[in-house]
Computed example of a mutant assay.
Amino acid sequence: MSSVTVFVDDAVRGNLPSVCAKTGAPARKVMRIDQDLTGSLGALWLLVFFGPPGWVLFAVLAASRRRQHLVVRVPYADEMIRRYHAARRLTFRVAAGAGALLVAAFVLPFLFSTFPQGLDLAAGLFVLSGGLVAVLVCSWRAQRLLVGVDLDASGRWVTLKHVHPDFAAACEAVDRGTPVARPIPR
Results as ranks from 00 to 15, higher is better:
Val71Gly: 14
Val107Gln: 00
Arg67Thr: 12
Tyr76Trp: 08
Tyr84Cys: 04
Leu90Glu: 13
Ser139Val: 02
Arg89Asn: 11
Pro116Leu: 08
Thr91Gly: 12
His85Asp: 08
Val137Tyr: 13
Leu125Arg: 09
Arg67Phe: 02
Val71Asn: 11
Val127Asp: 07
Ala96Asn: 06
Val72Leu: 11
Ala134Tyr: 10
Val107Tyr: 00
Ala123Ile: 13
Val74Pro: 00
Phe106Lys: 12
Gly124Met: 01
Ser64Ala: 15
Arg93Gly: 09
Arg82Glu: 15
Cys138Lys: 08
Pro116Met: 13
Leu119Ser: 10
Gly131Thr: 03
Leu132Gly: 15
Leu136Trp: 05
His85Phe: 14
Ser113Tyr: 09
Asp120Lys: 06
Val133Ser: 01
Val135Pro: 01
Ala87Pro: 09
Ala63Glu: 13
Ser64Ile: 01
Arg93Thr: 04
Phe106Ala: 13
Gly99Ile: 08
Leu111Tyr: 02
Ser139Asp: 11
Arg83Ala: 13
Leu125Asn: 02
Leu121Val: 15
Ala86Asn: 07
Ala122Tyr: 05
Ala95Tyr: 02
Ala62Met: 09
Ser113Phe: 04
Leu119Gln: 07
Ser64Asn: 10
Gly99Gln: 10
Pro116Cys: 14
Arg88Leu: 13
Ser129Ala: 15
Leu119Val: 15
Gln117Trp: 03
Leu108Glu: 06
Phe115Val: 14
Arg82Lys: 08
Gly97Pro: 11
Tyr84Lys: 05
Val103Tyr: 04
Phe92Glu: 08
Arg65Pro: 10
Phe112Ala: 13
Asp78Leu: 07
Asp78Ala: 09
Gly118Gln: 10
Ser139Met: 06
Gln68Pro: 01
Val133Lys: 03
Gly97Ser: 02
Phe115Gln: 12
Ser129Cys: 09
Phe115Leu: 13
Pro75Asn: 14
Val127Gln: 08
Ala87Ile: 01
Ala122Lys: 11
Leu128Thr: 00
Leu132Arg: 04
Leu128Ile: 00
Leu102Cys: 09
Ser139Leu: 05
Arg65Ser: 07
Ile81Asp: 00
Met80Cys: 07
Pro116Ala: 04
Ile81Gln: 05
Val94Asn: 02
Tyr84His: 15
Phe126Tyr: 08
Ala123Asp: 06
Ala96His: 04
Ala122Trp: 06
Gly99Phe: 00
Ser129Tyr: 11
Ser113Arg: 14
Ala77Phe: 10
Ser64Leu: 12
Arg73Ala: 11
Ser64Met: 13
Arg67Pro: 03
Met80Phe: 02
Ala63Tyr: 12
Leu132Val: 10
Pro116Trp: 05
Val71Leu: 15
Val94His: 07
Ser139Cys: 01
